[in-house]
Design a protein around this nucleic acid. Structure first.
Lengths: 225, 225
DNA sequence: GCTTTAGTTAACAATTTGGTAATCATTCAA
DNA sequence: TTGAATGATTACCAAATTGTTAACTAAAGC
């Protein structure tokens, strides 16, 4: 089961906010509500939604303003944005799309169509987001960032340490023989001494602070929280 | 100047085919015309368009059939597809979107809106979204002015320095391998020495005053505030 | 043309990393 | 209980990698 997609929905009309949120949640999405443009912006930064729905006419900041500002932040450069509005005239629709929105839907909204369009956008954006992150309990191993995180703490591992931990964590609970580790982390050609693995395991344990690598004497090591 | 995007447009009504093609070409797109579903499919395989517009009701194969068939081919799994139809009822719109189309537009079509929606889809599918202004924390990277601002202070970087920083900052936290940096900033043909990247990184760090580039030995560099 | 600036290279310094050996601690079985 | 295995720990060194400086070359501006 993959995690539910988070959708931020911003509209200043409480009724619409309620009805649409209800429909989105029924569809299995996690909905974050915002009642104006400024709040939408703040909540985006806080929650990092996977998709954003913005009403155009909102107090403090219009949907177009919010869209423009979001598109400047690296984190939201590719997040799908849907514009929502009562205006159905051409020029405002074009303006919305040219701002960087991915879709533009005129009110009155059919919840079914909205959901179909949202599904289409998320289906598309998921294809580009192939992150290589592993999560085991409160530990995160991010291959693209080369970073291990335990809770809120970042742990900096050297290249070999990181590779070794990644290997063990790739199949939590499974025991890796010393031979396997050698050939998978060091390669089959390289020949290193017996104690090399131990030393690296030691360094990992030291840096992590958490006891997550278990020794099985005479066999090998395994990852376990 | 980047190469014009190719758009395949399939409709069995010659008038519409003509009018819309004219408008697309006026906008700078290269248009490939198809008069039925089967032809659309064949021409797609032949020309590999960047975006596909399909009328739903066409002889031989409907737009939905074509869409389904295309989505099974690896080359067209992510190509944006726009459905076009006279039917404006909900169910067919939902059916179109759920088939794997990225947008659904009801006739009569406003050429301006069609083009806006096409632009939005192409903008999204283009890999590197060339955003003009990026903001990360209190740092602003402005591609148009070739200027980096930290808080209120302007930092003047040379071309290569600016490009390198822009690349790293485009995905904060993500590690860029030396190879990636070389091919993305210098291009894959150019061959430069090993130390070139280091020297540029050094100059950036020096000019910026803020420590925002982190070294990961044996791997690469990443942007982090 | 001359000057300035940017980009690259080379040489060396500093740092990090990976690997080894020696020693210590633990396990397990006779 | 005791002693061989086996792993843990520490210190140390060599190799790899990056940082830094300076010099050289190419391009841009005057």
């Amino acid at each position: 089961m993959e995690p539910r997609a988070k959708i931020l929905f911003a509209d200043d009309e409480p009724d619409i906010l309620e009805i649409i949120s209800f429909n989105l949640e029924k569809e299995g999405y996690e909905v974050i509500q915002a009642k104006d443009g400024q709040e939408a912006l703040d909540l985006c930064k806080l929650h990092r939604p996977d998709l954003i729905i913005l009403d155009i006419m909102m107090p403090y900041k219009s949907g177009i303003d919010v869209c423009n500002l979001l598109r400047q932040l690296p984190d939201f450069r590719t997040t799908p944005i849907v514009m929502l509005t009562a205006l159905s005239d051409e020029s405002s629709q074009i303006k919305g799309l040219d701002t960087g929105a991915d879709d533009y839907i005129s009110k009155p909204i059919s919840p079914k169509i909205l959901i179909s369009r949202i599904n289409a956008l998320l289906r598309r954006s998921k294809k580009d987001t192939d992150q290589k992150v592993m999560k085991i309990g409160d530990m995160t191993i991010d291959q693209t960032r080369f970073l291990v995180t335990i809770g809120e703490t970042d742990v900096n591992l050297a290249k070999k340490e990181f590779e070794l931990l990644s290997l063990l964590a790739s199949k939590p609970g499974r025991v890796f023989l010393r031979n396997e580790i050698l050939s998978l982390v060091w390669g089959s050609e390289v020949i290193v001494g017996d104690r090399t693995i131990d030393v690296h395991i030691r360094k990992i344990r030291q840096k992590m602070g958490v006891d997550c690598i278990k020794t099985i004497k005479g066999v090998g090591y395994k990852f376990e929280l």
